[in-house]
Design a binder for these strands. Structure first.
Lengths: 198, 198
DNA sequence: CGCTAAAATGAATATCATTCATTATAGCGT
DNA sequence: ACGCTATAATGAATGATATTCATTTTAGCG
């Protein structure tokens, strides 16, 4: 028999998750201490561990929520288009948009999660898989309809697309070259589409 | 008047650097402690700080040495070829080869250095710039000779190339998809070259 | 062969993540 | 309304580890 209501537990959970998102995106994983997060959430240090197993679990939870939103948007937007080229362009544009909208979370994901030693097999990796799977689905369809040249390794092309965009966007996230979404998306898409044309 | 010879100082420096490379590539930055490195080098913890300012400085020194080797090789190999296509293919192949030859150092660079908050303006970034500059030089020449379509943003294309390869190779470094250098390099090069053809 | 400045040491310090003994409290049964 | 108790919440203690610095050792000159 629990002594606090499910609502209260949810509220606490949310306060902590929100605080973690704010503090982690602002200061980065290593600069942000658990005490910073606890203070921001208005709870004691120890309580964090009744809601999350560890600092990393907290980070993972923040990014999981972020990723779920991205995934829903990507899936719903990309398949509105019918032609391969339009789908691909929309995917590139949306992916770039993410970096503009949430540089802090993108930075966190790239610098702390994707490269972590425990990434393989994690829930975050599963989400990342589903996210990039959208492109694979788009390509399978395109190959059937002969819109792309046969014999291209889809996973290799996927890595080229997401890796290339990420690298480009990283400079934006770090305050280097400014990203102009529509324009850059068009250039990237054109190069990559020409690269796989029949 | 120093009480040890320059040779001895060099030897110590090298022992520590070698130990750091071994320990850091094997255990990763956070799992490896300064004591681990000191033990491997056969010196006391404190002495590390008479040769390097901090753990990060040690990491940077290890990667600087690594990068200098890569750079020398890239510059000497790529410009042996005269045609744009051959230069580009060679660059892609060499870059992929690096991930096969030194997965530990590549992993360290990607996960700990390129994403670090103090990367901008660092010596390592300068080396990275020189490294990727090779591609920019190749492209400038190619554009003058009309081997690539005009109006392509070279830095954008550069990010696409290095980002794409890195992403692909990351799976290799992490024990995922196995990299077949010659074959994968050919596929990547073909896609990207077709993408910028006049 | 002692002297001294620099090299080398390793115990002490500071900073966290995490744990856990202790205290506070929600809400049930009476 | 009022204890009672299981759970929530706390925050000081623990352990790990980067870094510092007072102390010890040593190279090699006069």
């Amino acid at each position: 028999m629990p002594r606090i209501s499910a609502e209260r537990r949810q509220d606490r959970h949310r306060s902590i998750l929100d605080a973690a998102r704010r503090v982690l995106t602002e200061k980065g994983l290593h600069e942000a201490s658990m005490s910073d997060i606890a203070r921001d959430a208005g709870v004691s240090d120890g309580l964090l561990y009744r809601y999350f197993d560890s600092k990393r679990a907290l980070l993972d939870a923040v990014l999981k929520e972020f990723y779920e939103g991205l995934l829903a948007r990507l899936e719903s937007e990309v398949f509105r288009h019918m032609r391969f080229e339009d789908r691909f362009r929309r995917l590139v544009e949306l992916h770039l948009t993410t970096f503009i909208e949430d540089p802090g979370l993108c930075r966190l994901f790239i610098s702390e999660v994707r490269v972590a030693s425990n990434y393989r097999g994690s829930e975050t990796q599963a989400l990342n898989r589903r996210y990039t799977k959208v492109l694979l689905r788009v390509m399978e369809r395109a190959e059937k309809e002969k819109r792309i040249r046969p014999g291209i390794d889809h996973t290799l092309f996927r890595d080229l697309v997401f890796g290339g965009i990420e690298h480009l966007a990283w400079r934006h996230v770090n305050g280097g070259r400014r990203l102009k979404v529509a324009e850059d998306a068009a250039v990237i898409s054109t190069i990559l589409l020409d690269g796989v044309k029949p």
